[in-house]
Design a protein around this nucleic acid. Structure first.
Length: 560
RNA sequence: UGCCGGGUCGUCUAAUGGCAGGACAGCGGCCUUUGGAGCCGUAUGUAGAGGUUCGAAUCCUCUCCCGGCAGCCA
């Protein structure tokens, strides 16, 4: 083996991140009998966002990489916040991302009976007790970061009494908040999570799957490790804020003496110019700042889908950003790179004029069909015909009466190439009474037909155009970042940093006829303008609506 | 100031005692019938101070900074 080969080889087997290293080591020591089993455990209390996508790609990617298993499990332990709508959307999003979760979706609520039995076991061991303290009293006796808490007066009830009370809790004999089941650990622990944490609370509320079968619900700390244990998860991967909960995760499983997965924490994704907490996203939706969870400006999976992102781009993005333990604020430009990179290779090209300016070719008569390339990155995509006529639309921004230095497009008396067509010269500028340019009179040079090879003429710029006669009219929605500051989530008055211009609706864009029959989510590159896809909500038979996924990278900068 | 965790180019992330590398974003150039794409080049980083060592981003000590934790949320 040569040196280069060895290097390439070692590159391939290099672990992707610290979690892969842990798993490699576990495999080496046969810690889990060669098994790798991960899971994604969302609470159905909101839609999934790009941060969840990171977790899904990480967990599913691990299962895929090691030939292991991956579960989708709803952590549905709080009926007050959870809804079936969220369950449905989450399943759709996970599937869309391409994560295969085996035969069926799993639910923590299916384990309620077993969790109850485990709780009874802990009571019998003298490790759990029913506490009559109110919520306020529990808070007051928990102590502070620097001071130990006080033990509950109900801490030393007999096993018999605890068993009786716990059973009656389940039967519904007590009102909300009147009693809890608590683990008996250590009220003086420097880790506040270990100060007799609540395992069950009384909530008389209908559960979206269990109906009224239960009125006591397990807390996250009690339930989560059990869910992992019951499913035989090997690596229970979660975000950093649960690091302080790991000792409790371990305590419950050890006291029960049951199968004990390993919890590993990584840093959640933060994206610049957006918010990522479900609470804030919910507020944006509820208060009408956006057009629902799937608004194309939202960092939700459904929002990105509607915006025109692809699962592949999101997956590549999550691989680009990596996985580590330090807090990070990832620049949105990485995500934009990922989608441009993907769409550049796959998107059908088309010409579309967003803000039309009419031009008349005074020396052109008749019409003809010109050849246009469908995708320069993919020769197999072939070519198409584009109708060329005497009257055309060009982009308003592709003409300037008083251009700055370095402007390559059309100017009075200047020449520019029409993409796939001829070089034209601007002979006359027609204005209205408000001194606005409303039309251009131009001449074309028949010797300069694209692909003819007859022209020796060179021009700096090439602009796109659409025949006025054959153009299709469409609404186009242009999106900008939802917030004006890099990290809005850290601010109390984050709502004040919303970008008032995050959505611009253009009602009268002129498109190449090819786009007339585009279906929802069909993706295109509008040449020189960006990537666009058909909207799923507002596009109807009579009216096309395109969403701008992302602009093309524009290297032309106005130089003063 | 209790406990836990973390500090590497502007950003994200590698290097596991042995040349601080990659990606994105910059910048410069080439090419181009998309000012797209592509190609080439380039600058910028180990929080600080000591110590161990032939050799330290990596190990030790101290300091500084950042994040998380006082829900019957997850």
């Amino acid at each position: 083996m040569s040196n280069t080969e060895r290097q390439n080889n070692s590159k391939e087997i290099k672990p992707k991140n610290f979690i892969y290293e842990i798993i490699d080591e576990d495999l080496k020591t046969n810690k889990w009998n060669g098994r790798v089993h991960t899971r994604f455990p969302p609470e159905p209390n909101g839609y999934l966002h790009i941060g969840h996508a990171k977790s899904i790609c990480l967990n599913y990617g691990i299962a895929e990489h090691y030939g292991g298993k991956f579960n989708l499990r709803f952590d549905d332990t709080n009926p007050e916040k959870e809804e079936q709508e969220y369950v449905d959307s989450i399943i759709e999003d996970v599937k869309w991302l391409g994560a295969n979760f085996g035969e069926k979706v799993l639910y923590a609520s299916d384990y309620f009976e077993q969790m109850y039995n485990y709780a009874v076991e802990l009571i019998k061991k003298g490790k759990a007790y029913v506490c009559d303290l109110s919520s306020e009293e529990v808070t007051a006796t928990r102590g502070t970061l620097t001071q130990p808490g006080k033990e509950s007066p109900f801490r030393n009830r007999s096993v018999e009494e605890n068993l009786d009370l716990f059973e009656r809790m389940r039967k519904g004999e007590f009102p909300n908040g009147s009693k809890t089941l608590r683990a008996k650990i250590d009220m003086a622990s420097p880790n506040l999570n270990l100060r007799d944490p609540i395992m069950y609370r009384i909530v008389h509320e209908e559960h979206h799957r269990q109906g009224n079968a239960w009125c006591i619900y397990p807390t996250y700390d009690w339930a989560h490790g059990l869910e992992d244990s019951i499913e035989g998860i090997t690596h229970s991967i979660c975000t950093l804020e649960f690091e302080n909960h790991r000792p409790l995760y371990d305590w419950f499983l050890d006291e029960l003496g049951v199968y004990h997965p390993q919890q590993i924490e990584f840093a959640r994704l933060n994206l610049s110019f957006t918010v990522m907490s479900k609470r804030r996203l919910l507020q944006l939706v509820k208060d009408g700042y956006v057009d629902g969870w799937d608004d194309p400006r939202m960092p939700t999976i459904s929002g990105y889908r509607r915006r025109g992102y692809t699962p592949g781009a999101i997956k590549n993005f999550t691989e680009m950003i990596g996985v580590a333990k330090r807090d990070a604020l990832t620049n949105i430009s990485l995500l934009e790179y990922a989608i441009r990179d993907d769409l550049n290779k796959r998107a059908q090209r088309a010409m579309a004029v967003l803000r039309p300016l009419k031009i008349v070719l005074t020396n052109y008569e008749g019409e003809e069909e010109l050849d246009a390339v469908n995708n320069p990155e993919d020769p197999k995509a072939g070519t198409r015909k584009v109708k060329f006529t005497k009257e055309l639309y060009i982009e308003q921004t592709d003409f300037m009466e008083n251009p700055p230095k370095g402007y390559h497009r059309l100017i009075p008396g200047g020449e520019v190439r029409l993409r796939y067509a001829y070089i034209i010269k601007c002979e006359e500028v027609i204005k209205n009474e408000k001194d606005e340019v409303v039309e251009l009179r131009c001449t074309y040079d028949p010797e300069t037909k694209s692909g003819s090879g007859r022209s020796s003429k060179k021009v700096k710029g090439t602009i796109h155009w659409v025949s006025t006669k054959y153009a299709v009219t469409s609404e186009v929605r242009l999106y900008d970042r939802l917030f004006t500051v890099e990290n809005p989530g850290t601010k109390e008055d984050w709502l004040k940093t919303i970008n008032p211009n995050s959505l611009e609706i253009i009602e009268n864009a002129k498109l190449e006829p090819l786009l007339k029959n585009a279906k929802p989510l069909d993706k295109f590159q509008f040449e020189r303008m960006g990537y666009f896809c058909v909207d799923t909500k507002y596009a109807i038979k009579e009216k096309l609506v395109f969403n701008r996924t992302v602009t093309l990278k524009d290297s032309w900068v106005f130089k003063k």
